[in-house]
Design a protein around this nucleic acid. Sequence first.
DNA 1: TTGCCAAGTGGCGGGGTCCTCCGTATCGTA
DNA 2: TACGATACGGAGGACCCCGCCACTTGGCAA
Lengths: 188, 188
Amino acid sequence: MPAQQRADARRNHALILAVAEAEVAAHGADTSLEQVARAAGVGSATVRRHFPSRRALLDAVFQERAEALCARARALADTPDSRAALLTWLSDVTAYAASARGMATTLTYDEAHVSLCSTKLSDAADPLLRRAARDGAIAPDLTIADLLTLVTGIALATEHHRDPAAEADRLLALTVAGISPPASGRAG
Amino acid sequence: MPAQQRADARRNHALILAVAEAEVAAHGADTSLEQVARAAGVGSATVRRHFPSRRALLDAVFQERAEALCARARALADTPDSRAALLTWLSDVTAYAASARGMATTLTYDEAHVSLCSTKLSDAADPLLRRAARDGAIAPDLTIADLLTLVTGIALATEHHRDPAAEADRLLALTVAGISPPASGRAG
DNA sequence: TTGCCAAGTGGCGGGGTCCTCCGTATCGTA
DNA sequence: TACGATACGGAGGACCCCGCCACTTGGCAA
């Protein structure tokens, strides 16, 4: 028996992933699986076999994006200002989620089916959060999950805006600052 | 010619709306128009004639909910603590949006097609915001649109959570407070 | 009251997607 | 080379959206 997977299966997996990536970039995250299959020149059943649900496919598509964000988190771990590091990372995540239509949707579902994307992100960003908390730079009871949920929420709510990225960034700043007047002068 | 609309059309409109309400409450906001038509015992074309898109239908369904929230806003306008009034109203909106699946989605699209729901809500809540701003109880550059967007974002992001209402309320509190440590002691 | 006609209705068909099943081609091994 | 498990892809059913069109019904006018 084959060790893991047949060669053609591996090939198709990669092919479908690449095609899906292009398709999502071109036509948004609500592309039909049929369309992906057609573009890849394979049967729709094959797509479905490799990625049981649309979410599974999107998850795979966005995984490398998520990987980039993880790397960013690791890079920011050495920045002197721990609060700024966290905020910068959040801003990056927001920018990604706002620009890549459907990434927010993918992250949203992580409660139900555990999403690889989301858990990886959480794991990578956790040191950032813990460092900031240790420095007393953020509220001590914050969790990465909360922050990610807020960010994806912002991305979802601004998805149909004229300029999603700008709007999302604005709202992120607002969330970070809170709604109180800037009494003690600390800003985002 | 008839003044406005024929009697049977009016009847059907009301019937479909009622059925849709029940259907959405029972099976979520992604119910198909066909399903609504079937449940109402009318042809699918009739549903489509009264409500051109699914969003139009949802909009109509949630309009009375929105009306309740508007009334709430008016009632809160006389509360002594202007900040608390605004926060209470936001919490109410969050609760509604989190419990009524799909209401958040409806509110989200207001940028593109102007949603009656959303504009009504904004108009009703504007006095609340302005009063709080005048009292210096909130950041002066806040807008109702921003707050509604944040709330709907929270609702969207927590929709698939185990306990959406509780989670949404938690995140709203977090958003209100901001992520900074509670230095000067002011809480939500 | 009766007749007319536009407003309103409902069903049909085309196009599309999702999803499953199953015969068949292909890969990897003996 | 031959065999068996693995993977493929197309067919087909169920569903949905959407536009079209012949028919019915409600309300005004004679």
